[in-house]
Design a protein around this nucleic acid. Structure first.
Length: 574
DNA sequence: TGTGTGACTTAGGACAGAAGGT
DNA sequence: ACCTTCTGTCCTAAGTCACACA
């Protein structure tokens, strides 16, 4: 068995932890919590009389609730998903629920609806907002700041803390990711009567908006949320919680990385065991071993089961199905290759080819499309097994561990003290990129990507011509200066030499930029920086490499990782 | 031994304002 | 001064995982 590190995890006192993190017993998260409650979005402003909705070519004055929902649709008519069948059907069904009986009897076909004037009004409003004068923008900014000042903070155990999302989500049409079966459904306006307030008994209880009352006021110190409500589209809970720079969140973050560091001390044993388990007589054990290999080696997510028809069809490790992998006896000259092709979280495609064992073939036997690859495995049993190997170990810890250890290794390999700051930063970004690739953090290529790439290429080309010209001129100047001792001619040669050099430098810089941009086309670096990379690695790297921290962490990140900045010495090792 | 759900972390896209190049 | 590109911030959806309950 592997059993390591048992019980020791949180008895170790971290550096200065008694100052940074004071913990309560039994899951108590706070003793005192006071806040102003969430901020509600402004109510619906009815359409002006001259902006009309038309049905079948005739103007129709809609009831206020129907009008509000019509405007949600009108605002997005130039977006692709209003053309999608599922979106339109869901929208129309929910819209009709908001209509009066007469409206419902009249408006039977979405295709006969003309939202043109409503859309035009919306566009005009957006334009107007963009064209506000500096002063007007400042006025708006100040008004927003006032809202933040009033609602954006709470007091938690003697500390004034920033709240993360103190605004109630405004109503609108649900936009899921990918092929979401609920896209287009109406996300209803949240009333104070829907909201549960959580605060401490001795605190000033937030006032509900005039004429309203809260659904409930509770005093539950075992949770960290300040307010919650149930969202109507998926029926899930939404929470108002603290900002990432809060003590509470910082402590949680630190714990997460400590668990990952703990994994470092026993990952070899765990790997040895799952390698061994690949040969187990128990099918369940074998499946678990292969799944663990995927989670460890490929950084796949656990893959909880999902309710069919409620969400887009995405999978993780445990929920992989037969159609998501293809086995090749040989592929690109390699033997026994498995080809992964599936949609993961947020409908981001995972595509990869890796050499793999015969086991997979076994798991695929007598199965067809739609069948689970790991039919003897789910995330609960997997995590249960993992936590028996090391306290606190779950599937996602592998992602944190592998991301952080990869960054540390890459920084060691790529780094070079002799480089200038720009070069060091490039190395840092490369290391960061290696992690993003491992974790499959993708982004849609920027809309202007092709164009801006072409622009850059054009610049490179013209610079090349310039370089050629400069070289010719240098040659000419050399020729003229040859044999002559005229100082003027020698100065000209020097000048031309410098020009060539400058040109070459600029060209190189642009070419590096082009490569960097191309390599980053579909890769998002921010997610790993924010959620997977132990900040102490980066802080220590900055200290050792003499790179100012603000070159890699902006203000928000420095606030979020204040705990790490505070405790990390140059010799920190993940 | 499975199932639902509550609480929390992780995720990419939209957008506005800042920064940088010409 | 203008235009483009980059960056930060907000937004909220979509995961993970533990626990209660049958």
């Amino acid at each position: 068995g592997v059993h390591c590190c048992a019980n020791s995890l949180f008895k170790v006192t971290p550096f200065r932890s008694e100052v940074l993190f004071e913990k309560y017993e039994d899951g108590v998260k706070w003793k005192f919590l006071e806040h102003k409650g969430p901020y509600f979005p402004p109510g619906y402003q009815p359409l002006p009389d001259d902006v009309k909705f038309y049905y079948n070519g005739k103007p129709v004055k809609l009831s206020l609730p129907a009008e509000e929902v019509a405007l949600f649709f009108a605002q997005m008519v130039d977006h692709e998903y209003t053309t999608k069948e599922v979106f339109r059907n869901n929208f129309f069904k929910d819209w009709r629920k908001e209509m009066t009986l007469e409206e419902r009897q009249l408006i039977m076909d979405l295709n006969k609806c003309d939202f043109g004037e409503l859309h035009a009004m919306h566009i005009k409003k957006v334009e107007a907002r963009k064209n506000l004068s500096k002063e007007e923008k400042l006025v708006n900014k100040e008004a927003n700041q006032k809202i933040v000042d009033e609602y954006g903070y709470c007091v938690l155990d003697h500390h004034r803390e920033r709240i993360g999302n103190f605004k109630i989500e405004p109503p609108g049409l649900f936009r899921g990711r990918g092929d979401h079966p609920k896209q287009g459904m109406l996300k209803k306006r949240i009333q104070p009567e829907d909201v549960i307030i959580n605060c401490s008994k001795g605190s000033r209880i937030p006032e509900p908006p005039a004429g309203h009352r809260w659904k409930e006021v509770r005093h539950d110190s075992t949770v960290t949320w300040l307010a919650s409500w149930t969202e109507n589209v998926q029926g899930s809970c939404k929470y108002v919680m603290l900002n990432a720079n809060s003590k509470l969140k910082g402590e949680k973050d630190w714990e997460k990385y400590e668990v990952a560091r703990k994994l470092k001390t026993c990952v070899d044993a765990i790997r040895a065991q799952y390698q061994e388990d690949l040969k187990s007589k128990q099918m369940g054990t074998r499946q678990r071993a292969v799944a663990l290999y995927f989670i460890d080696k490929l950084a796949l997510r656990a893959g909880n089961e999902k309710e069919e028809g409620e969400t887009a069809d995405t999978v993780g490790c445990c929920s992989l199905r037969v159609e998501h992998i293809t086995l090749h006896d040989t592929l690109d000259g390699q033997k026994c290759v498995v080809e992964f092709d599936f949609l993961g979280k947020d409908c981001i495609r995972y595509y990869n080819k890796v050499p793999v064992f015969k086991n997979l073939k076994l798991f695929m036997e007598n199965k067809q499309e739609g069948d689970d690859l790991f039919d003897r495995l789910n995330t609960q049993t997997l995590n249960k097994h993992l936590s028996s190997l090391m306290p606190g170990l779950t599937a996602k810890v592998f992602r944190t561990y592998n991301a952080s250890i990869t960054l540390q290794q890459q920084l060691k390999e790529l780094g070079n003290m002799k480089e200038n700051v720009a070069e060091k930063l490039l190395s840092y970004n490369r290391a960061n990129r290696a992690v993003a690739i491992l974790c499959n953090h993708q982004r849609a290529p920027p809309k202007t990507f092709e164009q801006s790439m072409a622009n850059l290429q054009a610049k490179i080309d013209s610079r090349k011509e310039q370089l050629d010209l400069a070289k010719k001129e240098l040659k000419q100047a050399k020729k003229e200066a040859k044999g002559s001792s005229d100082n003027k001619l020698l100065i000209v040669v020097e000048k031309k030499k410098k020009a060539v050099q400058r040109c070459e430098e600029q060209l190189l810089k642009m070419e590096v930029q082009a490569t960097d941009r191309e390599e980053n086309k579909q890769i998002a670096l921010s997610t790993s920086k924010l959620n997977y990379l132990d900040p102490r690695i980066s802080v220590a790297w900055c200290k050792n490499m003499e790179v100012p921290l603000d070159k890699i962490y902006n203000k928000t990140l420095r606030d979020k990782f204040a705990w790490a900045i505070d405790m990390t010495e140059h010799d920190f090792v993940f």
